[in-house]
Computed example of a mutant assay.
Amino acid sequence: MRRTWQRVLGDLRTRTHLDAYVVSACALVFSALSLVGDVLSQRLQLTVLLAGVGLLVFRITLPGPRVPEVDAVLHDRTDLEAVSVASQLAGARDVAVFAPSGINLLNSSTCEALRSQVLSRADGKVRVLLLDPSATEAVRVAARQLDDGQEFAVEPLVPSIRTVMSRMETMRGWSVPGSFEYRLIDFSPGFSLFAVDPGTNNGSLIVEFHAVHGPHTGTRMHINLSRASSNRWNDYWIDQFEHLWALGRPPVN
């Protein structure tokens, strides 16, 4: 029963199956009222009954959920670059980024898109979490994985972090209606994350797994999640970011 209520509350939070819940609620209310006498006319009772039956018949005709092939949900960076970051940010209000350096994502064009499409809104919010370059041991371990693990590394970790931090400091000085904040964390958990409105049905969440070896960073495996694809794993990765964000600290100027 507890799991059922959790599922129902999750559906209501994400506005999923609202039509079914509305009709079910009306049917329950009308059933209760019919027990206390002739409160409801037979015509109204029949209308609710037909609406419920009609909804059930309609849902029977809907195609069932497809089990996607692995290659349909797992990608490398080349596949994801087919859709520009600017287009992903169109209409967005909540953006969360975690990456050791963020050098590939947080370039000048992405920062401008964040300014013009998210931070230009009073309710826009951007949060960025980076590896703390002063955490010497954590940076050494991360560099061994991220730099030494690539056959053709182009952008060393520490200079990349410094470059992106400089951009973040510039963004902190912007006079914009929205809210911008970045923090630093003293360890790298082995993945990067880019979430756009992850709490909504239209949001998206991309996770990149760093692994330990590859020709270059573009070959790393990514997974693109949404509410439609999986409430469970979408919530899981949002929770991962929120946990890391709580562990991060504001930069010391």
Rank of each mutant, 00 (worst) to 15 (best):
R2D: 08
R3K: 11
T4G: 04
Q6Y: 00
R7G: 01
G10N: 02
D11C: 15
R15V: 10
T16D: 12
L18N: 02
V22M: 09
S24G: 11
L33N: 03
V39L: 15
S41Y: 01
S41G: 14
Q42H: 09
L44H: 09
G52V: 03
G54R: 12
V57Q: 04
V57S: 04
I60F: 11
L62A: 07
P68Y: 00
P68S: 01
V70Y: 01
V70A: 09
H75A: 05
R77H: 05
T78C: 08
D79E: 09
L80A: 01
A82C: 04
A82R: 15
V83F: 01
S84H: 05
V85E: 02
D94N: 07
A96P: 02
V97L: 06
I103E: 15
I103M: 06
N104R: 08
N104T: 04
L106A: 08
S108V: 13
S109F: 06
E112Q: 13
L114Q: 03
R115I: 03
Q117M: 09
A122R: 10
A122E: 11
K125M: 12
L130T: 06
L131Y: 11
L131F: 08
L131T: 02
P133I: 11
S134G: 07
T136V: 15
T136I: 11
A138G: 11
V141Q: 11
V141W: 09
Q145N: 14
L146V: 13
F152C: 14
P156L: 12
L157R: 14
V158C: 06
P159G: 07
P159V: 10
S160R: 05
T163H: 14
S166P: 04
E169C: 04
T170C: 07
T170P: 00
M171A: 11
G173A: 10
G173T: 09
W174M: 14
W174K: 01
V176R: 04
P177W: 03
G178D: 02
F180E: 06
E181N: 10
E181T: 13
E181L: 10
L184I: 04
L184C: 05
F187S: 10
P189N: 10
G190K: 08
F191A: 08
P198R: 03
T200Y: 01
T200A: 07
N201L: 13
N201H: 08
N201A: 14
N202S: 13
F209W: 07
H210E: 13
V212R: 05
G214C: 03
H216Q: 10
T217C: 04
T217H: 12
T219M: 08
H222Y: 01
S230A: 03
S230P: 04
R232T: 14
Y236G: 02
W237C: 03
W237Y: 11
I238Q: 14
Q240Y: 09
E242C: 09
H243E: 05
H243N: 07
L244I: 06
W245M: 06
